[in-house]
């Protein structure tokens, strides 16, 4: 199983542990990742707000590069990148004029042969739960995980084409396959405020506070996420949330791939566990 790999800007710095743990999980499960050489930013958050053409051209460059690598599937772990790549591919397929404009901008043709894959989907459907169960050496028995999907993993359905849009369960399935318990809660697909946390921090705290409260009320030991923006919004500002709302959650926010990696026998360093802000070692201590 060979895929082009597009880490994206966050996985290079603030979400380094997502990159590390995805690579580790892929190694354990026989998924070969080949990084797109000299990839550029997908423009997420901002290009689509200022120029539609730019918002398609930036990710399209990566799709063109993937074709040049001779690969037909690309994995982008960051859900924002994933969505931008998918939108670019789909819109170029639907709109001939737009495709021509993009090719003019990139000075390169695009055949349209690339399938953009969500990393959860690859683990669930290409690797399969069976193989994942067999790869586990350290089951996370007793750990209660609240799986948080956020916005774009399932929305909008015609682009995401993944899981149940109001009550997704793919991450829950993966977490149970590695021995963890998952909690039922109502905030799986609520919005974390995305990039609002940088520009309008106070507004974003209102949203993240509700999500953390939901996870705590459901009795979760930690929250599992699949997106760098979800992770940093929920993890980074728990102190500020405490100061604003008077509740200090101390809730570890981990990438699902960090938990998977640990269950497969990776070391805490391999999955960058020390990089998350709220200390996860106390709840993982027993494992």
């Amino acid at each position: 199983m060979k895929y082009a790999y597009y880490p994206g800007c966050s996985l290079e710095s603030s979400a380094k542990e997502y990159d590390l743990s995805i690579r580790a999980c892929c190694q354990y499960t026989g998924v070969e990742l080949i990084e797109v050489p000299d990839w550029i930013c997908c423009g997420a958050s901002s290009a689509h707000a200022t120029s539609h053409l730019l918002s398609i051209a930036l990710p399209a460059k990566t799709l063109v590069q993937t074709e040049k690598m001779g690969l037909h599937q690309i994995i982008a772990p960051c859900i924002a990148c994933l969505t931008r790549l998918k939108v670019a591919d789909m819109e170029m397929e639907e709109k001939e004029d737009l495709k021509k404009d993009v090719e003019t901008v990139l000075e390169s043709p695009y055949k349209g042969s690339v399938r953009v894959r969500n990393v959860l989907d690859v683990f669930l459907n290409d690797v399969g739960l069976e193989k994942i169960r067999k790869t586990v050496t350290t089951p996370l028995t007793g750990l209660k995980v609240a799986c948080y999907y956020g916005c774009l993993l399932t929305r909008p359905p015609h682009i995401a084409q993944f899981d149940d849009v109001e009550n997704p369960h793919s991450m829950d399935d993966l977490m149970r396959a590695i021995g963890a318990e998952t909690v039922d809660w109502s905030f799986k697909t609520d919005c974390c405020g995305v990039s609002m946390s940088l520009a309008e921090t106070d507004t974003a705290l209102v949203l993240t506070n509700k999500i953390l409260e939901g996870a705590k009320d459901a009795g979760a030991d930690c929250v599992a996420v699949a997106c760098p923006l979800c992770q940093s919004n929920l993890d980074l500002r728990q102190k500020a949330i405490g100061n604003k709302f008077g509740v200090f959650y101390d809730m570890p926010i981990l990438y699902f791939s960090q938990l998977m990696g640990l269950a497969f026998g990776a070391t805490t360093m391999d999955v960058g566990l020390e990089k998350v802000i709220v200390d996860p070692f106390p709840v993982l201590g027993a494992i």
């Binding site: 958050s45 901002s46 609002m196």
Partner: peptide
């Protein structure tokens, strides 16, 4: 603040090819 966000974001991408966080 949101206007500033978008401008600064794209400035970084144009200057470096990636977002310099």
């Amino acid at each position: 603040s949101i206007e500033a966000f978008h401008k600064v974001f794209l400035r970084s991408v144009e200057a470096y090819g990636r977002l310099y966080e």
